[in-house]
């Protein structure tokens, strides 16, 4: 019996044949109350106002309107930053995804038997995951200077955090039978891991890596904003100078690239599973 049932005791219902059933009190009223209160608080703090939206909502489309028609001639200058963004994301994803492997292994209860060690490793992964990517990128620009190296680092850290959790969950749900069988015929732990666990985890590992890469391309476009190189850099510049047709061109090229990458990656992921 949970605490909730103690505060709000279950209702007794009597059937026609004399049997009784306890009906636990519904949690819905409490949940609804919390949601309503929090919404009210949020509306007050953020100044949410539908009237403003109704009156000035059309202003949202002003900049969007100014982007059309896009400045087609500008496209020649977009290629290099666009490729920089792609390179940053690709390299960052690979570095992050590879370096996380030993950490994820150490955070899996079925590989490491020491609960304290697993707990510390998981806390570490959690904390890395809470670091906002933007902060990582800013710090990286201070350490590595402005440019793509900073962006690559930020993406690698983000990938590390994202893949870490997924990977250790994947390793933990792997079937340990094959691992034990390998150990039973005299293989070392590492070798048993390579032959028995990796084949089970690999398809979803690559699939998640590809998924992460898709997201990273979008993220990389933001990172340039803080000076970490790539598309965000020129996007920031053109927005600052209010050259909206050029901004439109950048966004269109980013869209086509993301569309292309997602299509290829979805095809690969479907083949993997």
């Amino acid at each position: 019996m949970s605490i909730y049932d103690k505060i709000f005791p279950p209702k007794k219902m009597v059937l026609s044949n004399g049997k009784t059933v306890l009906k636990p009190a519904s949690r819905l009223p409490l949940i609804a109350l919390i949601l309503v209160l929090f919404t009210a608080l949020s509306v007050k703090i953020t100044g949410f106002d539908l009237g403003v939206l109704r009156e000035r909502g059309s202003q949202f489309f002003v900049i969007l309107g100014m982007m059309a028609p896009p400045e087609w001639g500008y496209s020649t200058q977009v290629w290099k930053p666009l490729f920089d963004t792609l390179k940053m994301s690709l390299l960052g994803t690979v570095i992050g995804a590879v370096t996380v492997i030993p950490f994820a292994m150490a955070a899996s209860t079925n590989i490491v038997k020491n609960n304290a060690a697993v707990g510390i490793m998981r806390l570490f992964l959690s904390i890395v995951r809470t670091l906002p990517t933007l902060v990582t990128a800013l710090i990286a620009t201070y350490v590595f200077g402005l440019g793509t190296l900073a962006g690559t680092t930020a993406i690698a850290v983000f990938t590390f955090a994202y893949m870490g959790k997924i990977l250790y969950e994947e390793i933990e749900t792997a079937d340990m039978g094959a691992f034990e069988a390998m150990e039973a015929i005299g293989a070392t732990k590492v070798r048993a891991f390579v032959r028995a666990i990796i084949p089970q985890v690999l398809p979803s590992y690559i699939s998640n890596g590809l998924f992460c890469f898709e997201g990273n391309v979008r993220y990389a476009a933001i990172l340039g904003y803080v000076g970490a190189g790539g598309l965000g850099l020129i996007l920031n510049e053109k927005l600052g100078w209010r050259e909206y047709p050029s901004v439109g061109m950048i966004l269109i090229m980013l869209f086509v690239t993301v569309f292309f990458i997602e299509t290829v990656s979805r095809y690969c992921r479907r083949k993997l599973v």
Partner: peptide, 19 residues
């Protein structure tokens, strides 16, 4: 209705699983 539903569950012997 609720009581009828519970009685129906009783008839098939799973009244204890009602909730």
């Amino acid at each position: 209705d609720k009581l009828e539903a519970l009685e129906a569950l009783d008839k098939v012997g799973i009244l204890d699983k009602a909730f």
